[in-house]
Amino acid sequence: MAKSEIDEATVRRIAHLARVKVTAEEAKSLQRELNGILSWVEELNAIPTDGVEPLTSVGGAKLHMREDVVTDGNKPAAVLKNAPKSEDGFFLVPKVIE
């Protein structure tokens, strides 16, 4: 496992990737907490996992297939019911294209 201390710039980069704004103060405490958690999970390095398959599904159940047809929909009012801003059946967002 990568032995790494993350610095404040990395915290800011991750926060931006996750689309969460953090203040300078938050970045500092997050840096400390994240490093604490990351150094703790490094315990896993001690466990040999060569040749072990990663577990991606506990049930092992096959995903069920169904007919490729529309089973739901035509509920624009329900879809937009909780939208912070909407107009004419659309979600409204800040201008994206200049």
């Binding site: 496992m1 915290v11 990737l17 996750a18 958690i37 990351l38 996992t49």
Partner: peptide, 22 residues
């Protein structure tokens, strides 16, 4: 943030894949 970090480029195998193997 932890989740974003362990899934980010260059760290995925070291953290997430390792944890799934464990």
């Amino acid at each position: 943030l932890i989740g974003t970090y362990v899934l980010s480029a260059g760290y995925y195998d070291a953290y997430y894949l390792k944890a799934q193997k464990v």
